[in-house]
Each structure stands twice: as structure tokens, then as C-alpha cells.
Design a binder for these strands. Structure first.
Lengths: 250, 250
DNA sequence: CGCTGCCTTGAGTTACATCAAACGCGGTGG
DNA sequence: CCACCGCGTTTGATGTAACTCAAGGCAGCG
């Protein structure tokens, strides 16, 4: 099972903000975590952070390891999953720019990472080690609240995953994965959306075998609500697709 | 589908603490939420709270409703679930004394409840309305951190649910439900445990039909690692049961 | 032009849900 | 004490969604 991509698309370095010599953030960068802090707090946080580049397949944190790094995804995409007893991965969600991970480092409870995270694309992150995190906590009175917001949004997403993905038939799950992924990862406009996802990645995310995923996708292509190439899915109309798959016969 | 019990077992009023005239808590009461506060904060929180009795079948909060009540379960048991698209319930977990709910009321984001909670046993809770919650936030500087801990533990449990229940075969799920329920709800000693759960409740929690649940339970009874009566399961040895069901052939 | 992976297709198998029907425990009333 | 009834439980027969496995097709690349 592979979550990473072989190719390495658009690993780009965000443009530097002219007014600051602190670590660069891409223009238009949004983060639930940073949004909860004051401009001053953001500044001191960013100067304390160490930037890092990431590549596909790279394991960014592993469940069970001692939590000693708090980090923020700046560019790229990561897969968040959990290892099941039998060894294979239970996909939880995609991580996109602005998402923070390794919260255990700050919360201290649990002391170890609870999920495993793997890079899927080229990208970059900002990391705070244990010492920096501690400083961060002291310097940012709003950090507690900000973390609450982040935690709440994670909870929300997870509950949503449980309620929606987990106990619906395979076809609905796959449709859902496509729609949600489109919202998070889609490149172009609003309606026509291209997704750089292989059948296998989709299958993992929707919790089914590649075979089942292929069959459903093929069926949808025959219906004309979707086109696919190797490693790429194209939804001509996102809302159209959503409607067509939600309804009567999937 | 029924989560509530018909009988009304041990709805008991906790003994009052002699040193205080604030709302009573049972002896030996533990709560992640309260543990995160200072004694002074706890005191002011408890005096602001309104006690309430609850009965089986009572809906304590409903997903989608505006979040206007933060509450702490004092005695009894509740079922936390989510309504699926098709209308039936996706069981998330049991709520036991010490658990807090309606966090959205304090976090404000999301503004509505994300899960539905139903009482399963007679019991009691302490509730803070919107105004009291606001006061609580102002009076308790440690509340943010305390909520962090609560949220983190919820996340942890949810991830665990996803990883364990959702994608294991039915038998393993059922075994898991029994073990976890035993840990949370078991009455007597440490090894021998009695559970007041009907086959139907177990089936809901383990996400299967009553039929499948019955078959598995019957099989285990034949093996001697479990006894059952109407509406009651007895595990002669919890650890023995866990070992026997985790291993080779379930 | 052949190789390497991704993708597709079909046949066989399994786990679990669905449905119909009956059993039996535990309470209730005669 | 017995007959009755309701509801939780049990069993078997049957259907089916999705997984497994084997094999071949096809795109892109050297």
C-alpha cells in the first residue's frame, strides 16, 4: 500500500514577505493555529521555528514515538493514518498547508504521537522542538485557546469521518473521498477539478481494495460524471458529481 | 434500535461532602475536566452549576441543535452516538461519571452540538447554561488547559475507535466492545465482571446485527470464556477473555 | 521496442446482513 | 400453581457486497 506519489509535483518555495526577515510563508497562507494567535505571538513563534523540506514517502512522525516535535505544514500534502493491529494503515485524513501536527508535544498527554504521518508530495514545514515548544507556551497566552480550536476542528473532522465514511457502502465512501479530496486538494476553478491521486491512494482513503475502487471509477466514467488518466482523476463538475453519487443508485 | 435500558438500576444520590454546601459529588468521583482546575476554581464552578436528574431514553443533547449547555455527568451512563445519513445511529462511546459534554458551548466553534447523547441509566448531571459557561471561562484561568486535556482524550479515544472497531472483522469488534465496556462499566471486582447489556446494545456498539452478535456470544459461551443471561453478560475473567479473543482464531 | 508499474477484468470465496420462524425466560393474572 | 403473553434471544436458509487471486492490457519511459 502506497500513499506517496512517485512524481514530485509543484514543490515550490513560497514568496518571502518583504516586511519581515522571519521564516517565509506563502502568500494567502491560512492556518487555524496561527489565526488563534496575536500578530506579536505569530512573529515570535515563526522566528523560533526551524524550516524543513519534505519529500514523498518521508515519515514525518510515527505513532508510539516520544512526542518531541510540534510542526506546521507550510506547503505540500501529507497523509495522516494509524497503523492497525494487522499492520496495514487506517487512513484518517489528508493534511494540507496550515495544519499543525505533533500536538502531543505541547499537551504532554499523551506523551507519544498517536498517529503516523507520511509526506505525499514535495513540500515544506516549520518545526518547533521540545524546548522551543515550551518557550512558545510561555510566550503565547493565547496558545491554549488556539490549540483548543485546532483540537476541536480535528475532533469535528474525525467524527465526520466516522459518521460518513466508515459505515456506508463502499461506493458512497469512495464518492465521499473524491468530493472531500476535491475540496481540499483540487487545483483549478470551482467546478472542474483535477485530482492527482492514484487508484491506490483513493482505495486506501476510502478503505477498500484497488479492485473495488477501479470498478466504481470505471462505472462512473462510463456514466460520464468523471474522467480518468493514469494517476489523475478529473471531475468535470464537482457539484454534479456529488449529486449524481449521493442520490438513488450511487 | 434501543440503547436505553428498560429497568432502572442503581440511580443513587451521591453522599454529600460534609465540608461544603455546594452541589454534592459522590465519593471517589474522578473527572479529567475537574482535575485540570484548582480547588478554588472547582468550588466556584460547582456552585454555579445546576444539578439535574436523568432517566433512560432521555435525549441530553442532539446533534445540530445550538450548543447552549455545558455539562458533567455525575452518576449513571449515557450513550454517545451520531446520526448517519440513513437515519440510524453510529455508536461512538459510552459516557461515564466524570465525562463532560457540550464542549461546543464553551469553544463556540462549532456553534452546534456535533453528537447526540442519550441517557441509558438513571443518573444525574451538573449543567452550566450559556451565561454560566461564560462566567466559568472568566473565573477559571486554567479552564483552557483543562479543556485541552479533555479534548485530547476524546481525540485519542475516537482515533482508537476508528482504528480498532471500524476495520476489524465483526468478531474482533464485538470482543473489543465487551472488553472496553467492562473496563468502563463493570460492577464487581477486577477479573470477574458483569455487564448489564442486552445483545441489541452490544450489537449497536459493535456495529453489527443482533443475529451476528448472538452467534458470536453463543460461540464464546460454548468455549466457557463467558456466560450470559437475559440482558446480562458475565465475564469470569476479563484478562482471560481478552487473551482468548485477541489471539489466533478469535 | 521492450520493460516496469498502474490499471482492468473475471472467477471464486468469504463474511456478514437479511428474513422468517420459533424458542424460552420472567413477569402477570387467574 | 398454572396458563398466558411479550420480548429478548436463537437458529437456519438465503442473498450479496466486497475481498482475494490470477492474468492480462496498456501507458509511459528508457
Amino acid at each position: 500500500m502506497r500513499l506517496s506519489e512517485r512524481r514530485s509535483p509543484r514543490g515550490f518555495e513560497g514568496p518571502r514577505r518583504p516586511d519581515s526577515n522571519r521564516t517565509a510563508l506563502p502568500l494567502g497562507f491560512r492556518s487555524t493555529f496561527l489565526d488563534g494567535l496575536t500578530p506579536g505571538e505569530i512573529n515570535s513563534a515563526l522566528t523560533a521555528a526551524k524550516p524543513e523540506r519534505i519529500s514523498p514517502h518521508q515519515i514525518l512522525q510515527q505513532e508510539g514515538d516520544r512526542a518531541n516535535r510540534f510542526w506546521l505544514l507550510v506547503t505540500g500534502r501529507v497523509a495522516v493514518y494509524r497503523l492497525a493491529r494487522n499492520g496495514n494503515r487506517v487512513f484518517l485524513r489528508w493534511g494540507v498547508p496550515g495544519d499543525t501536527f505533533g500536538l502531543s508535544t505541547i499537551l504532554k498527554c499523551p506523551e507519544t504521537y498517536v498517529v503516523t504521518i507520511e509526506a505525499v508530495q514535495e513540500g515544506s514545514l516549520l518545526a518547533w522542538d521540545k524546548a522551543s515548544s515550551r518557550t512558545l507556551v510561555l510566550r503565547c497566552p493565547n496558545l491554549g485557546k488556539s490549540l483548543n480550536a485546532v483540537l476541536a476542528s480535528y475532533l469535528d473532522r474525525l467524527i465526520h469521518v466516522l459518521g460518513t465514511y466508515a459505515f456506508q457502502p463502499a461506493e458512497q465512501r469512495l464518492a465521499r473521498v473524491l468530493v472531500e479530496s476535491a475540496r481540499q486538494l483540487g487545483c483549478t476553478g470551482h467546478e472542474r477539478i483535477e485530482l492527482d491521486l492514484t487508484n491506490e491512494q483513493l482505495a486506501v482513503a476510502a478503505r477498500m481494495t484497488v479492485f473495488t475502487a477501479t470498478r466504481k471509477l470505471t462505472k462512473w466514467q462510463a456514466r460520464g460524471i468523471l474522467t480518468k488518466r493514469r494517476g489523475k482523476i478529473v471531475l468535470p463538475s464537482l457539484s454534479g458529481f456529488a449529486k449524481a453519487t449521493k442520490g438513488p443508485s450511487g
